[in-house]
């Protein structure tokens, strides 16, 4: 099964993290830092696997990652998944994001935190890969957003505040 999904930017800031086995918040942060430390030390154009990950996950936990522009997409999984298939899955995930956000960039990921989770949940449930077709995922996600906007339209008040208020 898949144990965790992380999106970390090039400076080590987490953009998305989902652990399929419960981890306390501090532990999550520590893991993300650890993974980033390992990844940032690797040059480009080398293999995308990391085998030894310390003791936090089981000994057979493996990691694949892909580096897109400013973001690392990281999947952690055990040996009931195929490494290359996981790489493909990262591709599927990114493709889906790309379709949802019309050529995705880091800012989309930053500001669409909940949508990211929705997309991910359509692809993976409980560590199991359920959907590998980005069109299908797209369809489901769009349906959800449509439903949400209709059900909450009545109560919705736009409360976005100009940024000068932010301080």
């Amino acid at each position: 099964m898949i144990k965790a999904v992380m999106v970390i930017n090039g400076l080590g800031k987490p953009r998305l993290s989902k652990f399929y086995e419960f981890q306390p918040a501090e532990k999550q942060q520590e893991l993300i830092r650890h993974v980033y430390a390992v990844l940032s030390g690797r040059p480009d154009n080398v293999s995308n696997f990391i085998r030894s990950l310390g003791t936090v996950f089981g000994p057979d936990t493996r990691l694949v990652y892909k580096h897109y522009a400013t973001l690392y997409f990281v999947f952690l999984f055990d040996n009931s998944e195929n490494e290359l298939a996981m790489l493909d899955l990262i591709q599927v995930f990114v493709e889906t994001l790309d379709k949802c956000f019309k050529s995705v960039c880091e800012l989309d990921v930053v500001f669409n935190y909940s949508k990211m989770h929705t997309i991910l949940d359509e692809i993976i449930l409980g560590g199991q890969v359920l959907e590998t077709d980005s069109v299908e995922v797209m369809r489901a996600v769009e349906e959800i957003s449509k439903l949400e906007s209709t059900t909450s339209a009545g109560t919705m008040i736009n409360k976005s505040i100009p940024s000068w208020w932010a301080r």
């Binding site: 500001f111 935190y113 409360k159 976005s160 505040i161 940024s163 208020w165 932010a166």
Partner: peptide
């Protein structure tokens, strides 16, 4: 009324 949204929080 003047609650900050998640987006505001992130921007902030």
């Amino acid at each position: 009324l003047f609650q900050r949204s998640l987006e505001d929080l992130i921007k902030g």
